[in-house]
Write a protein that binds this DNA or RNA. Structure first.
Lengths: 149, 149
DNA sequence: CAAAGTAGTCAACCAAGTTGTCTAACCTTA
DNA sequence: TAAGGTTAGACAACTTGGTTGACTACTTTG
């Protein structure tokens, strides 16, 4: 019997590959997973580079590289922090929000197909089961998002 | 609602981190995931470097590096292929088998804890659900194992 | 107000992959 | 059975995406 993490890794890759394929099929430039996760993070809150690094589970330097890329490509911009002169808030541009919206739709499609393949209730159970495990292991604070192969 | 792949990635990492921590707590040198996956692959079959690369989802050159490491560390050895003079079979040494056995016990422990945290039946559903999805997407041939961050 | 801590940047480095090239051996197939 | 295409493995150069370390400017705390 295969260990659960292998199943997780394979499924992660399978879904990611499909996502990636369809994105470029449509002609939208396929960013890396990290970029998408940054968008999603910024959608809900204002955040500094350090915050982003923490969320992704990488160093602030690595996060800074990603933010710089996204900035150059026009998906985010940096604005001065209102009270802390060292810091900057990174925020989504309209282009960034549009990309996220589009990607979310694509994810929905993929999940719908998954639900069709394995059953709606099964998918719900997977979702909730994994979430529950993460809460159990990590309590409140989010774990690193990056898989570390 | 978070996309499923994020949950997969976070869970993969959470379990992997725990595994890693306990391994070194015990004093056993913690190899990388790829090494463990190679052991598991070799347990069941004789395989060449190319086979291993395919299984992991990397190029044969990348696989060759891993095999060389494992060889130097004494976990595997290469023996001549009986009929094909170009090829070599990679096989587990006793040290390799011992490591695998140990790691498997550790995985069992972790899964048992997971089962306790989220319920036995939930874990079974996750297992079978993911496996079913993979069959649905990939048919018979195994997908690449490496997550590709 | 001094000391310790933090955000961001720069630079050097490293790990783990990639592509490309080559040789020797293998597999048609005509 | 020779010829042309394919394959296993090795070697080398390179790319990617991270790391650690050092430093400045600013902030927080005692």
């Amino acid at each position: 019997m295969e260990p659960v993490p292998m199943l997780l890794a394979m499924t992660y890759r399978a879904m990611g590959d499909q996502f990636h394929d369809r994105l470029r099929q449509i002609g939208l430039e396929p960013l890396r997973p990290a970029h998408g996760y940054v968008f999603r993070f910024l959608k809900e809150r204002r955040a500094t580079t350090v915050d982003i690094g923490q969320h992704l589970g990488v160093t602030k330097q690595a996060a800074a590289k990603i933010v710089t890329e996204l900035d150059e490509w026009g998906y985010v911009l940096r604005e001065p922090h209102p009270t802390d002169k060292r810091a900057q808030y990174v925020t989504l541009t309209t282009k960034g929000r549009d990309y996220l919206k589009f990607a979310d739709n694509l994810w929905s499609d993929l999940e719908a197909e998954m639900a069709e393949a394995i059953g709606d209730d099964t998918l719900v159970t997977i979702r909730e089961g994994l979430a529950a495990y993460l809460r159990h292991v990590h309590g409140e604070d989010q774990p690193g998002l990056r898989p570390v192969w």
